[in-house]
Design a protein around this nucleic acid. Structure first.
Lengths: 250, 250
DNA sequence: CGTAGCTTTGATGTAGGTCAAGAAATGTGG
DNA sequence: CCACATTTCTTGACCTACATCAAAGCTACG
């Protein structure tokens, strides 16, 4: 396969799609990105991809499937920090810290590309544009964690659930996995509860309420926005933090 | 002032102290860091340093005083995302995103060094070691935001408060502003409430409870750890995410 | 076709919120 | 150094959002 073909095929990956939505990347940039994509691995549901406290972890880019990163608590509970969808980086921090501070669990069967520290650094020195784009994507993820924190700290269970579903929808749209109508969602109500800091029972009640009010329907692995605008309104959703212009490129 | 003197004086800054606790930096690295420190500015309490939605913000390194970054909610409430203490970077994300997604408010009178995007990039290309050190510090801050998220999602008000005070203590110790006994803390109970996702009234009750149980005393602008080990135990505090080895340097 | 994981619902308990009001600090101008 | 204003702290009474417990109906998959 010559360089142009590589660039063409990588362009359809969710990772490239996400970055390209905000940054122009040359064929050369894409070819380097494609190199990072080489070491493909599969993960089955039920076995964590990354373990808290374990050292010498590597990072991944999610090619297909969903995963989530979470922290376990002494008491036995857990808090899901972030849901990862195709195109997301995963464990980027554990490249800098030698040991991971959280677990990552596949929610569905996952295909992911292993990214070694040395490869990433090599790629970065070859193409600063790609480096900036990746850093920018990482910052965007961090902005979402912050928004999640606000969810937990200051929004009611209903607002929080609505807000989370809207954000997830916006992220999925960016990689072509959903639209303004809704998206396929493999999350169980248990996992939703661990994400939203609620009990599974209460999540169920909140979902029923949202459904009965004609706002969103989450059933049978599918989220449908019945009244998008009303949902945005009631949850205080502000797309600003997702809609930033692209990074200031070097 | 020659280069050695510059390096000697910058070494005492909280910023350098923090990085030097984990990374060896040469005199040349420190001289470059010192350049970043040049544009000193002062901020009075009551006027935000950075405004949500405002564009072309710059970043700062806190030289003295405390600040906090927060998000406002449509309903009028707010959530404090992070407390910044001397040595902390502030608004690093708004260098990548052209517009800031949160506010930053001084808690005490603040002295901070303005860091321009171009200067930072120039510094980074001159000394990759410094670049890695800064990225690593940023990752460490992100790890703290994650821990904060876990606080809000899955810990009781008491655990959460204890955990937060322990973490703050650990951070302050790193820059020489506290020890295992305690630290000076200019936070009001209102701000503590906005940080912990609680009401001010409840924060007050929790603090009383912690005091009466002989765990921590927070009074008159001073936090005293009355029983450090018991506090660590009850809050499930795990220093791992703060005690990482330094970054893997290039 | 059985068993394990989800979803749904009801009944009851509790952590933490809200309202209210007084007491201490802290700051400000004279 | 004092009088006054403002913020901050403290406590009590009451209320609500969400947790917990329990149990039944679904779904799905080996």
């Amino acid at each position: 396969m010559n360089e142009t073909n590589v660039a063409l095929s990588i362009q359809d990956s969710p990772f490239a799609r996400k970055l390209l939505a905000f940054v122009r990347l040359s064929d050369a940039d894409l070819a380097i990105m494609s190199d990072l994509y080489r070491r493909r691995r599969r993960f089955a549901v039920g076995v964590d991809m990354i373990h808290q406290g374990q050292t010498d972890q590597c990072a991944y880019v999610l090619a297909s499937g969903w995963a989530c990163s979470y922290k376990l608590l002494p008491g036995g509970g857990r808090q899901i920090v972030d849901i990862q969808i195709p195109g997301d980086f995963l464990g980027l921090r554990s490249i800098l810290f030698r040991t991971s501070d959280h677990n990552v669990e596949p929610i569905t069967p996952v295909q992911a590309s292993e990214v070694r520290q040395r490869d990433l650094i090599a790629a970065f020195s070859q193409t600063p544009r790609l480096a900036t784009a990746v850093l920018w994507a990482a910052s965007r993820d961090e902005a979402m964690v912050v928004e999640h924190l606000v969810d937990l700290g200051r929004r009611t269970a209903t607002e929080r659930t609505a807000h989370f579903l809207l954000e997830l929808g916006a992220r999925l749209r960016l990689v072509g996995l959903g639209d303004r109508k809704g998206f396929l969602c493999p999350l169980s109500q248990y996992r939703l509860a661990d994400t939203l800091g609620l009990s599974a029972v209460h999540v169920n009640r909140v979902l029923r309420e949202l459904r009965e009010e004609g706002l969103v329907t989450f059933q049978k692995g599918r989220v449908v926005f019945d009244d998008f605008d009303a949902l945005v309104e009631m949850s205080g959703f502000d797309r600003a933090y997702l809609d930033h212009e692209g990074p200031l490129l070097i």
